[in-house]
């Protein structure tokens, strides 16, 4: 039997099971055979048109559509609540709700820093107030009769340093203020001298802080007359009985 006859009989439904199986295997392998079969089937199917139609029962349609509905339902993905589309305001509100904890933490941090800063500012303000009170006291003191302020010239060794002496005539105590004077190592010290009639008398030792500042009250035991000279030298720790003129810092 030719392949054409096999295809024709297959299209007519006239092959037995074994023959049908064999031609289907051949068709599966050969696209040209399938095209040939399509030609034949196109004519054979026309035969179906020759029979009179028969009205199907309503039950047939119900059964078929129920089957289709079940299939559609099984293919439909499981519905999950879809998120409705949001307006721009709703999106902003949602974004705010999401960002709110971050903003809250940030606000807390800012509040904490601000609080600490405020405390610091309060402390600084308090110090300034105290300084102002002190300055007011000093100004008041300076306005007292006999009070003097004497600037002490620096030698070339410490040209950038400055010093002043504040005292009151008739009083043995005097206030020495220095600035820009480098701090010394522990083995050495600054020593103040009061020179009366050309003779230096040790008035006290001191050292400056990290900023090069110092403020020392010196007690001379002898009332200040206004004719004295004042000097500062660098000496060994503990002070010296006589000033080392090689290390003179201030004299005036």
């Amino acid at each position: 039997m030719s392949i054409e006859d096999q295809l024709m009989l297959y299209a007519l439904g006239a092959l037995d099971d074994n023959e049908k199986h064999a031609i289907e295997q051949a068709l599966a392998r050969d696209p040209a055979l399938r095209a040939q079969l399509a030609q034949i089937r196109g004519v054979v199917a026309v035969l179906g048109e020759s029979v009179p139609p028969v009205a199907p029962s309503a039950q047939l349609k119900r059964n078929l559509m129920a089957r289709v509905d079940a299939d559609r339902a099984s293919r439909r993905p499981t519905l999950t609540p879809s998120r409705p589309s949001l307006t721009i305001w709703q999106q902003l509100a949602l974004a705010w709700r999401r960002a709110a904890p971050v903003f809250a933490l940030g606000a807390m941090a800012i509040a904490l820093v601000s609080g600490l800063w405020a405390v610091s500012l309060t402390q600084q303000l308090r110090q300034v107030q105290l300084e102002a009170q002190r300055l007011q006291s000093e100004v008041a003191a300076l306005s007292e009769p006999g009070v003097f302020v004497k600037a002490l010239p620096a030698t070339n060794a410490q040209a950038t340093a400055s010093a002043s002496l504040v005292g009151q005539l008739g009083s043995p105590k005097v206030l020495l203020r220095v600035a820009n004077l480098p701090a010394l190592d522990p083995a050495r010290t600054y020593e103040a001298w009061i020179i009366r009639d050309g003779k230096p008398v040790a008035a006290g030792v001191f050292n400056t802080d990290a900023g090069g500042m110092a403020q020392v009250i010196l007690d001379n035991t002898i009332p200040w007359t206004g004719k004295e000279q004042f000097g500062v030298t660098i000496e060994n720790a503990g002070g010296s009985p006589m000033p080392n003129l090689q290390t003179l810092v201030f004299l005036g």
């Binding site: 297959y10 299209a11 439904g13 289907e24 068709l27 599966a28 399938r34 095209a35 079969l37 399509a38 030609q39 089937r41 196109g42 004519v43 026309v46 035969l47 048109e49 020759s50 029979v51 009179p52």
Partner: peptide, 25 residues
């Protein structure tokens, strides 16, 4: 099966089917 699959019908056959009627067949 092969008989269930739709065919690509050649043009001459398409014309036949377009003008088909039970009476003609």
């Amino acid at each position: 099966t092969m008989l269930d699959l739709p065919d690509e019908m050649p043009e001459p056959l398409q014309q036949i089917w377009e003008k088909m009627s039970s009476e003609k067949v």
